[in-house]
Design a binder for these strands. Structure first.
Length: 874
DNA sequence: TGTGTCACG
DNA sequence: ACGTACGTGACACAC
């Protein structure tokens, strides 16, 4: 008889892991399937790799366990299981059943205890045991017969904890893992441990004394005063924590090894389930043909002639584009839909129809659009005007939840439970194989999108209402879409000769620097390759690597700057990088983007960022150089589109700190802004405890960095990096700052608590960002979510404000009957072009509108400038 | 297609 | 202790 091999799986832990490792997927019924899919992948991989004779999946029984009688707060503060995961558990159970695997749960016990008890039984029976979980606690069960595999990254990558591996990794034996948890606690299970003791300290103590008990027996030998004090004061808690972390190996389970025989899966049941879940690739692997689910039947009328009867008062409209660039790609046709009919109109028909032209321009007919900004721009390209857009599916979905950002109607529809649209990839194909399909299929696809918008209007509108986001959507984002569309179509005139001249100068200089670098290196190599550069610097020349990346040595600028004194080549490389960037991204990149009209037409993504900001693509005009003079010259290429016009730029001064003052209600910060103080100097006075005259440039610079840090959700490490000081010094700065601005401290704390409680944070205009990681047991993920909780309301409120200002500004220019045009938004600044005659008026109204757009408890301040090019607006 | 780097607010 | 500052997009390289 072959030796028995038993695999014990921790069901809850692996289901969670699968859920969070994979993006949300749904089948056609709208049931989420990502956790089931991940779990399936894990099962298949494990069974194939381990070839077990016996398998079991253990589940946690319920909320209350025997550990709660020891400590009522055990596993406290955990976020509830997301409903998207809860609904998947029945499927995971069905799946396990179809695989012919026993599953077991036991009242008052956790999966850990079932696994512990069974592994003990198997050990006694001298069988080989493999435990699979995402929870490192289980590693305490490792021994010569038992390997504990913990999910590492993704879903099928497992780290194998054998006693040898644990010894190598932590320097302790498996059972000492329990002592380690006793000392350091476990945030994910809310096990307290001893304050001030983390992994490093816990391991140090255990290597010296061996166990929690031994540590306390030798407590007098411990010299570190603070640590000893913590240990003494929290003795009971330490022992309790150890008890909580100990896996029960004598649980009263009613299964035994003999019940766990694994004979293989029931192919028919598996296929049935995979079909229900639409696991196409897995079915294909089993050689089962997958029939495509027919879409819901919709009668699509391909219109021959547009009649007034078909154009009703309220309709959904979808303009289909060949690709995502609606400013340049072909307009393939238009879909229309309402309660009774769905139509497809070719572009030619639409443009030749006066009926359609007047209907689409009519403010009185309501249109529900899939992406109104795209529609505004595309309709404008057809020589018509779109008015009366009352709903925008893409924007509405983004407002409801910005993490759901896609411009594909099919994806948005699916996430709201509507499955009547195929993906663009299925219709057009992918990559090089992409083609526009035959007219019938194109008509169908386009019309289906229009129908989806119609069907989803009430669904998404309801969610906006529930979230109290109707105003944000209807009064801010929707009108903004129209304005952005106008800005994109207008474009920015670009002087190609300026770019060319700068480019030529750059090329010459680059050639010289390149030569110098090769001479210094003693060989030619690709300076743009971090890999090759790393070899030259750290192996050939022998400089000391300061930082490593996943793939090798880091050659990032901050690293190279630290090495600049070591070797002359560094400064040349830095300069080469800087100039090379200008040349490739800005000179060559921008030149390629100049259209026939001599303008660059960027597109603003309005439904992308997690904070509510815009982004700019094809090209990005929100990151044109300014900080270094050499790069700043690029801005001279951006000029007015008409002669005798000027560029006019206005930016908010310190908008994020003003927003912070407002939402934190910190009295000192509010007062500083009301007095019109230089905020960095004021911060320096408080942090360094000096008066205004004593603040030198270094102090102000440090204060500025602290202010940045505060806005970003401060960490001592981050601040230490930006100021090049030690973490300790940075930490002291932060403490002093927060002591001196208690309102800010209060804000930081409450925004995190708030995010934990509600699962999301909000901006002034009720924009939301969900932060599921805020309760993660992973320090990195949680820390990131916490900083985001602090930063997003600030950055997002600033975005709300400038968006409102753009709407007000557009209205004001209209009202004043001005020719001036808004061209660009760069997060806290607006750029216009205008006839020189309008300059005086602009100087007056731009700051006025921007400053008055939303009233905060501190004044908003706007600086402005003008000139013959963007460069001159400084 | 992912990674590293660097441009902006 | 953990090893990151927040938010973006584009380019070159290496696979």
């Amino acid at each position: 008889m072959t030796k028995k091999k038993i695999v014990l799986l921790d069901g809850n832990s692996l289901a969670y892991r699968a859920f969070f490792a994979l993006p949300l997927l749904t089948n056609e019924k709208g049931v989420h399937t990502n956790a089931v899919y991940g779990f399936t992948m894990m099962l298949e991989t494990i069974l194939a790799n381990e070839k077990p004779t016996h398998v079991i999946v253990a589940w946690d029984a319920g909320k209350t366990t025997f550990r709660h009688s020891t400590y009522t707060e055990y596993k406290g503060g955990r976020q509830k299981t997301p409903p998207e995961l809860s609904e998947q558990f029945p499927y995971i159970r069905k799946l396990i059943e179809a695989f012919g695997i026993t599953q077991y749960e036991l009242d008052l016990y956790e999966a850990d205890d079932i696994i512990g008890t069974l592994s003990k039984e198997c050990n006694d029976a001298e069988a080989e045991v493999v435990i699979i979980s995402g929870d490192k606690d289980l590693t305490q069960l490792a021994n010569d017969q038992t390997t504990v595999c913990i999910t590492r990254k993704g879903i099928t990558d497992l780290e194998k904890y054998t006693p040898a591996h644990i010894e190598e990794k932590y320097g302790i034996a498996p059972l000492q893992i329990i002592d380690m948890k006793g000392l350091m606690g476990d945030a994910s299970d809310n096990i307290p441990g001893v304050p001030g003791i983390g992994e490093k300290t816990a391991l140090k103590l255990l290597k010296e004394y061996g166990s929690v008990e031994a540590v306390y027996e030798s407590i007098d030998q411990i010299t570190a005063k603070k640590m000893k004090e913590n240990l003494v004061n929290n003795k009971e808690q330490a022992f309790m924590s150890k008890e909580l972390a100990t896996i029960e190996v004598h649980a009263p389970i009613t299964v035994s090894l003999n019940d766990l025989d694994f004979v293989g899966r029931n192919e028919e049941e598996v296929i049935q389930l995979y079909k229900e879940l639409q696991f196409k690739s897995l079915l294909e692997k089993m050689d089962v043909s997958v029939e495509v689910q027919p879409l819901e039947e919709i009668a699509v009328h391909t219109v021959e002639e547009i009649t007034s009867e078909m154009l009703t008062d309220t309709m959904s409209v979808h303009v289909e584009i060949d690709g995502d660039n609606y400013l340049s790609e072909d307009i393939l046709g238009i879909g229309l839909s309402n309660d009774t009919d769905t139509y497809f109109i070719t572009t030619e028909l639409a443009t030749s129809s006066d009926l359609f032209k007047s209907w689409i321009a009519d403010h009185a007919t309501r249109k529900y659009v899939s992406d109104s900004k795209s529609a505004y721009a595309a309709i404008a390209r057809l020589g018509m005007e779109l008015n009366g857009a009352e709903f925008d599916l893409m924007l509405a979905a983004y407002i409801v939840n910005p993490s759901f950002s896609t411009n594909e109607v099919s994806e948005i529809a699916r996430s709201f439970g509507y499955h009547g649209v195929e993906s663009d990839e299925a219709v057009y194909g992918k990559g090089a194989k992409r083609t526009v399909p035959a007219s019938e299929q194109l008509a169908n696809h386009t019309a289906r999108k229009a129908h989806a918008v119609w069907e989803l209007y009430p669904v998404v509108t309801k969610q906006l209402e529930d979230n109290e986001q109707r105003d944000l959507f209807h009064d801010l984002e929707l009108p903004l879409a129209k304005i952005l569309g106008k800005m994109e179509v207008t474009g920015v005139k670009t002087d190609v000769d300026v770019l060319k001249t700068i480019g030529e100068q750059l090329s010459e200089r680059l050639a010289v620097i390149e030569k110098t670098i090769y001479e210094m290196a003693g060989e030619t190599f690709n300076i743009n390759s971090p890999k090759q550069l790393g070899v030259i610097l750290f192996e050939k020349i022998g400089l000391t690597p300061i930082k490593k990346t996943k793939t090798g040595y880091s050659t990032a600028a901050d690293v190279l700057e630290k090495l600049a004194s070591e070797h002359e080549i560094i400064q040349h490389i830095l300069l080469y990088r800087q100039l090379g960037k200008l040349n490739s991204t800005y000179i060559e990149g921008l030149t390629k983007e100049i259209h026939e009209d001599g303008k660059i037409h960027t597109r603003f993504q309005q439904a992308l960022t997690q904070t509510g900001r815009l982004s700019s693509i094809n090209p990005n005009l929100q990151n044109i150089p300014i900080r270094l003079e050499e790069g700043r010259k690029i801005r001279a290429a951006f000029i007015p589109s008409e002669t005798e016009w000027i560029m006019f730029a206005a930016d908010y001064s310190q908008i994020e700190l003003r927003v912070l003052a407002h939402i934190s209600q910190d009295e000192k910060l509010i007062e500083a802004f009301r007095q019109g103080a230089d905020i960095h100097t004021k911060t320096a006075m408080d942090v360094f405890g000096v008066n205004e005259e004593e603040v030198d440039s270094n102090m102000r610079r440090a204060a500025k960095a602290v202010n940045f840090g505060i806005v970003y959700g401060i960490s001592d490490y981050g601040l230490s990096q930006s100021l090049n000081i030690t973490r300790k010094e940075a930490g002291e700065f932060i403490d002093t700052y927060l002591a001196s601005f208690p309102g800010v401290k209060q804000y930081m704390d409450t925004s995190i608590i708030d995010a934990k409680q509600k699962g999301y944070v909000t901006t002034l205009l009720k924009r939301r960002r969900y932060l599921p990681d805020i309760t993660s047991s992973n320090f990195n993920l949680r820390g990131f979510a916490e900083r985001t909780a602090m930063n997003t309301p600030i950055q997002g409120t600033a975005a709300d404000i400038i968006k409102q200002a753009m709407i007000d500004m557009d209205a004001r220019l209209e009202k004043e009957n001005m020719q001036a045009r808004m061209l660009l938004q760069v997060h806290d600044e607006l750029i216009f072009e205008a006839p020189i005659e309008e300059l005086e008026k602009l100087k007056e109204i731009v700051p006025e509108v921007m400053e008055q757009t939303i009233q905060l408890d501190v004044p908003l301040k706007v600086d402005w400038n003008y000139g013959k090019s963007w460069y001159e607006t400084k």
